[in-house]
């Protein structure tokens, strides 16, 4: 039976009665747009295998999200585009040529375990894409650290029949790491030469994850996000600055290389800036970025993995509630 109402049926709501034109889906769309340059560069360098990885991750994430929401008997949240974004980010953090079933497993983990278990967008303590990547790195260590060489565009191509090669980071670790003995060997110079040139590092002509190689494309995306006021400068700047200063002080590989290679750029601009898992205040964001950079470099320098960016961000995700607690803003007029 239809509810009884009066003729003049007015909307009753609490103030304010007007709203800025912002929405969650628009924010997610902006991040996706900002990721397009690096996606394009990834596809350019890694070819069809990159396309497949991206397609599989994104579609699996969407399907998993839909199924989870159905299982939970809650309204669908596909429309907010967060699942698409998670899938894209995950794909961009995977090496091209990874068996696709692994990408599927990772995507399911990202959405089902790292996000929907906690109730969906806004509740997850860890960045879903990063949690999934860490899960995959530990479960499928081999395939996850097998890097496809950028197809046919690598200048330092000594043996054309080799399709995989070490990332510059791994090479650097071998060369400059704290227990490196390589400098004594005659291969040292050759290894140095095998590092990509600065230009290659900027455009992304080096082995690595699909989306992390092209620093320029990532910088363009970050600039777009800053312009759209989707992110603030605090986390990227403090993250990258910490990495840079740390490597200046610690010595070893040139500091700019530490910034340009590996996941620092994508991590600082796209992963660490994830709203849900990063602090809300400006001060907290600075601390967060600093912590990410520091942990990232500690793991790079001393840890068992050549790359520590995702772990660093995950650990800082865990510390984020405490940072939020410590950096509550002081109200206007409070003592």
């Amino acid at each position: 039976m239809k509810p009884k109402t009066t003729e003049s049926h007015l909307v009753l709501s609490s103030s304010p009665h007007t709203h800025a034109k912002s929405s969650v889906s628009r924010i997610m769309l902006d991040v996706i747009i900002a990721l397009l340059p690096t996606t394009a560069m990834g596809i350019w360098f890694f070819g069809m295998s990159a396309v497949w990885t991206i397609a599989v991750c994104v579609s699996t994430c969407i399907v998993t999200e839909a199924l989870c929401r159905m299982a939970m008997k809650r309204e669908s949240t596909i429309g907010d585009l967060s699942a698409v974004l998670t899938g894209l980010l995950l794909a961009l953090n995977l090496p091209a040529g990874l068996p696709l079933w692994m990408a599927v497993a990772g995507s399911v983990f990202a959405i089902a375990i790292a996000k929907q278990v906690f109730g969906g967008l806004g509740m997850n303590p860890f960045n879903p894409a990063l949690a999934a990547r860490a899960f995959m790195l530990i479960s499928f260590t081999g395939p996850m650290t097998t890097w496809l060489k950028p197809i046919c565009r690598c200048k330092c191509d000594a043996a054309p029949d080799v399709l995989t090669m070490a990332t510059p980071l791994a090479t650097m670790k071998r060369l400059f790491g704290h227990d490196a003995t390589a400098s004594a060997t005659p291969h040292f110079q050759q290894a140095i030469d095998s590092l990509p040139s600065t230009w290659d590092m900027l455009v992304g002509n080096m082995p690595g994850c699909i989306g992390e190689v092209s620093a320029i494309a990532l910088a363009i995306g970050a600039a777009y996000l800053l312009w759209r006021k989707v992110i603030t400068w605090h986390i990227p700047v403090s993250f990258i600055a910490t990495v840079y200063v740390y490597s200046l002080i610690a010595g070893g590989a040139p500091a700019y290389m530490q910034v340009l290679t590996g996941g620092v750029m994508i991590g600082a601009c796209f992963m660490a800036t994830d709203y849900v898992t990063s602090p809300i205040t400006a001060k907290g964001k600075l601390i967060f970025g600093f912590g990410c950079g520091l942990l990232c470099m500690l793991i790079r320098q001393f840890g068992g993995y050549p790359e520590g960016c995702s772990f660093a961000i995950l650990i800082m995700n865990a510390i984020c509630p405490l940072i939020n607690r410590w950096t509550q803003p002081k109200p206007f007029g409070a003592k």
């Binding site: 509810p3 009066t6 049926h9 909307v11 009753l12 709501s13 609490s14």
Partner: peptide, 24 residues
Amino acid sequence: TRSEAIRVGDYNGICDCNVAAATA
């Protein structure tokens, strides 16, 4: 019930009587 008592408006806000009562 909804079918017996008239609703004069279309409340849009937090589902809680105290705030609903404070809204008009």
